[in-house]
């Protein structure tokens, strides 16, 4: 391919990757202007609100994707986020008080480390137990919810009014975290044997295993990374809402189902770049829709109906798109075969 061809290819892919978030932004901006008389991101605070929910949704969806596309629907992801945030966050607060280091950074680092440890342990136990991932996820979710509830006097993690946590709401800092997560995860997926093996397992776990890939090692790494991403996600959610309270009764599962839209949309957008960038764009799109609807003042049930209606329409579109794509490729193969046969006949 020539340099011009490369550039055209790159621009085309970039354009397609950004198409959906840009379209969503334009639509929701017009919607907000009509319903509430102000733009979608009219105030500086809107940007902060968007940034924190975006980084949460991005990290959460990426964490779910790690296991989801290898056949493990991990219902415990929401509980892992809560665990990393409450346990890690409170440890971070203590660490900051003892060392004098920045509170926000201590909380983020400790939540990340706690999430990684929890993820590693959950993955390691899973590979030994090998029970149905969904059932396992439910059991783990209950255990983690109870641990979070029992810890720190059931007060969860309170960030409002805590000095030094302002950094978690700074746009530059959130941007930096985005950059680090995208680079690290892209590196893992594109330039390490883990990424290669992950894709192989995604194709067929049995074939991957028969060809010498250690599927258990890969599984543990998936859980480990998902736990770490959960820790990061939870801290930004806590920074937004000021406090994270422990939940019981498997209520954390709703976080998993609530982020499925971003996950599916992310894999669709990812066909023009990679899954990480895809989820980055999809989580932005979903958050723009959420903010737009919340500005309109519609009742929560109507908002939920609209979001899930869009989700269903998207799923139908994706199905049709895939079918059309397969049909197009099939037709191209038939044309090529006919042409080849004609050439051979002529010869």
């Amino acid at each position: 391919m020539t340099a011009n061809g490369n550039l055209k290819f790159l621009l085309q892919r970039t354009g397609l990757t950004l198409l959906i978030p840009v379209l969503v932004y334009v639509c929701m901006h017009i919607f907000c202007q009509v319903t509430s008389g102000v733009g979608l991101l009219a105030y500086s605070v809107d940007l902060k609100n968007l940034a924190r929910t975006w980084v949460y949704s991005f990290a959460f969806s990426t964490g779910v994707a790690l296991n989801f596309f290898n056949g493990r629907f991990d219902f415990s992801m929401g509980a892992q986020v809560m665990f990393g945030t409450i346990i890690g966050g409170n440890i971070g607060k203590i660490l900051s008080e003892l060392t004098g280091l920045n509170m926000g950074i201590c909380i983020l680092v400790c939540a990340l480390v706690t999430g990684l440890l929890a993820g590693w342990l959950i993955g390691a136990v899973f590979t030994k137990m090998r029970i149905l991932p969904m059932v396992y996820g439910l059991g783990i979710a209950m255990i983690l919810e109870c641990v979070c509830f029992a810890g720190f006097d059931s007060n969860g993690l309170i960030l409002f009014g805590v000095e030094g946590t302002g950094i978690l709401s700074e746009l530059w800092f959130i941007g930096l975290i985005f950059l680090i997560v995208i680079l690290v995860m892209s590196y893992f997926f594109s330039f390490t044997s883990f990424g290669y093996e992950w894709r192989a397992i995604q194709g067929s776990q049995q074939i991957a295993s028969n060809s010498g890939i250690n599927i258990f090692r890969n599984c543990i790494i998936c859980y480990l990374l998902a736990g770490g991403l959960g820790g990061i996600a939870g801290v930004f959610n806590a920074a937004y809402s000021g406090t994270v309270l422990p939940e019981l009764g498997l209520s954390t599962i709703s976080e998993v189902t609530g982020n499925l839209f971003a996950l599916f949309l992310g894999t669709f957008i990812g066909q023009w770049s990679n899954m990480i960038v895809g989820i980055f764009c999809s989580s932005l799109s979903v958050q723009l829709i959420t903010i737009g609807l919340s500005k309109s003042g519609l009742s929560s049930s109507v908002q939920t109906v609209i979001i899930y209606l869009i989700f269903v329409v998207f799923l139908v579109f994706r199905e049709k798109y895939s079918s059309a794509h397969v049909k197009k490729e099939k037709n191209a193969r038939i044309v090529l075969a006919k042409k080849k046969r004609a050439e051979l006949g002529a010869a």
Partner: peptide, 19 residues
């Protein structure tokens, strides 16, 4: 109406009104 627990984007809506 609504609450943080049962409404997506509740805080964003609150923030938008305050702004």
């Amino acid at each position: 109406p609504g609450s943080v627990a049962n409404t997506d984007g509740y805080l964003a809506g609150l923030s938008a009104q305050l702004m």
